[in-house]
Amino acid sequence: MKKARITCGVDIGARSIDIILFDGRKIIDSIVINTGAKPRERALSAYQNLLVKNGIRKNKLLKTVSTGYGRNHFTDADEAISEIACHAAGVAYYFPDAELVIDIGGQDSKVIGMLPGGKVVDFGMNDRCAAGTGRFIEMVSDILDIKIEDISKMSFRKVSGCEINSMCAVFAESEIVGLLQNDVPVEKLLKGVFVSVAKRVVSLMGKSFSSREIIFTGGVAMINGVAEALEQETESRITVPSNPQITGALGAAILAGKR
C-alpha cells in the first residue's frame, strides 16, 4: 500500500461526524460519531485517532477534504467542498451510472441530479424547515418512545398510513400528539410520517429530476420504511448503498484525490 495516495474525507454534519480514509481505490477505515456540542474538537480528535489507529502520519496523507456544515471550521483540511458535490462523488463510487441521489440527513434533505461519473448538474434542498429531515423522524420517535433502531428494519408496505398534513415539523408534532389521543395505531402513524417525509423530498425534485433508479443516502436511508415510502411516491426503484451514512465523507476523500 503506497501511503502517498491516501486521502481523507471528513463530513461534519448536523447530527453526525463521518471520517473516511481512502487509498484511491477502496476504503481503508471509517468512523461515525455523534456531532455533539463541540463539533470542531470532536472531529479533530476522531480524525487524529483514526490516523493513529491505522498507523498513518498526517504528513503522509495526500490531502484531506472537509464537507458538511462544519467544513469551513475544520482547520486540518486542505480544502472544503460542499456536501452536494461530495455526496455525488461518493454515490458515483458505488454506482457509476447513477443519475439521481436523494440524501436525507439530520438537518436537511437534498436531491442531486448528476451525470454518470458524479458530476453535479442540478440540485434541490429543503429550506429552513425540519419536516422532511432526520431530525423530524427523531422527534417523532421521541414522542412515541420508540428507538429508531427498533423500527429501521421493519416493513410498512402493508400498513396504510394516516394523513399528516402539517408542513412544519413543530406543528406536525402537535398533529401527531392529537392523533395519538384518538388511538391511531403506532404503525399507521409511523407510515404516515414516512410518507410525509417522502412527499417533502419529492417536492424538492420538481419537474427537472427523474430517473428510473434513485440512490438513497444519508442517515435516514437506514430506515427501511422511508425507502419504501420514497419508492411509493417517486415510482422509481430506490437503492440504498450498504453504508449510506458515509457517502459524503467518501466523496470528500475521493475528490481529495482528484484535485
Binding site: 467542498i81 460542499s82 452536494i84 434542498m125
Partner: peptide, 9 residues
C-alpha cells in the same frame, strides 16, 4: 451550502 454547490457547478 447551496451557494457553494452552485459555484462548484
Amino acid at each position: 451550502v447551496r451557494i457553494s454547490a452552485l459555484l462548484e457547478i
